[in-house]
Design a protein around this nucleic acid. Structure first.
Length: 350
DNA sequence: AATGCGGGGAT
DNA sequence: ATCCCAGCATT
């Protein structure tokens, strides 16, 4: 039994806590106003939710105010040039979000009469709106009784249930357990649970004494809530080895070239290297020259650890094409990933 | 089921 | 340095 727990989440307790401690956020209708009949503006809720994908509240606030000032309605945003949207998004990261944001605004205007759909199912059809965001908008704006499961909730629920497997392996069970608890005030409940995760049940600190779920929380009973959620065992990081070849012409310019348009470090600049393999082969130099071994670079990618032997040589530029020669003083302005900056540093450049 | 995608804040 | 963040689209 994955979630052996006698009690569902106590929604009334969570809502009572939220009524007193809700965060004041620019896109939020307070629980008091909500009770008085004020309805959130789906445009503002949608905009905030997209900005908040994998992004902290602190980082989003200024962007949200700027966007709503420039474009108060979905019609305004849809009518804006994509360039302007991308410019305003600059610095927030995950730039596909900005393109999808604009595409979504256009779709809402064109296909939905400038009114956001009012169900999670319909919302999820729109660009940039997935399982989480569709549920969040539907719950917050329309009180659809749907489980809203984000990173905060993963953590809160993993602790509440003392989940002994990584969240990824119990997503459906958690969603089902949460779904059972969703009350009539679905929007406030969703926001309450997220506030709870952000302020009380935080990643490295759990303020259990003031938590409305404390009495039934299995992790608290065990004594160390921060043990959850358990992290998936990281796959062993294989090691790959190879050689990097730093060539300079008579004036000291360095040979660079572009990496392929797809794959690792796509489209970035590099110095030539050998293949990267599990075992280090003898170097096959690009051309005959006085090659000097200058040291080793170690770089850790997500899926493997790379060890490159760094070689340098003085060569004649005529012998090469497929790239360009770069003055050492101009290396800083090249699209060089950290790996190749390390290589160049080991070669004695920069 | 994995993987790529940014950048900032907390620890 | 490492972890985490109101995830989504693509393969």
């Amino acid at each position: 039994m994955l979630l052996a727990h006698p009690h569902p989440i106590d929604a009334p307790a969570v809502l009572a806590w939220y009524d007193r401690h809700a965060r004041d956020l620019p896109w939020r209708v307070s629980p008091a106003d909500r009770r008085a009949g004020v309805r959130p503006d789906p445009y503002r809720v949608w905009l905030s939710e997209v900005m908040l994908q994998q992004t902290t509240v602190a980082a989003v606030k200024a962007y949200f105010l700027r966007f709503t000032s420039l474009w108060p309605t979905v019609d305004d945003l849809a009518a804006a040039p994509l360039d302007a949207v991308l410019r305003e998004w600059a610095g927030l990261g995950y730039y596909a979000r900005a393109r999808n944001l604009h595409a979504c605004a256009v779709a809402v205007v064109r296909d939905h009469g400038s009114t956001f759909p009012d169900t999670s199912a319909a919302l999820q059809m729109l660009p940039g709106i997935g399982a989480y965001t569709s549920a969040a908008i539907a719950a917050i704006c329309f009180d659809e009784r749907i489980a809203v499961l984000d990173g905060n909730l993963d953590r809160v629920l993993a602790r509440y249930y003392a989940l002994e497997v990584p969240v990824r392996d119990a997503k459906d069970a958690l969603r089902g357990a949460l779904q059972i608890a969703v009350p009539e005030r679905a929007g406030d409940f969703a926001q309450a649970m997220m506030d709870l995760g952000a302020t009380i049940c935080a990643p490295r600190a759990a303020a259990c004494l003031v938590c409305p779920l404390q009495s039934d929380c299995f992790a608290t009973k065990q004594g160390d809530p921060t043990r959850y959620p358990v992290k998936p065992t990281k796959p062993e990081r294989p090691v790959r080895k190879g050689h990097a070849f730093v060539m300079q012409d008579a004036s000291g310019d360095v040979f660079l070239r572009s990496r392929p348009a797809k794959g690792l470090l796509a489209g970035m600049s590099e110095v030539p290297t050998s293949d990267w393999a599990a075992t280090l082969a003898d170097p096959e130099f690009p051309l005959a020259a006085e090659w000097r071994h200058r040291g080793q670079v170690v770089h850790v990618f997500t899926h493997f650890r790379l060890e490159l032997e760094v070689w340098t040589a003085a060569v004649l530029p005529d012998d090469f094409d497929g790239g360009w020669w770069c003055e050492p003083s101009a290396l800083a302005g090249e699209a060089l990933p950290t790996l190749f900056r390390k290589v160049l540093a080991t070669a004695g450049l920069s």
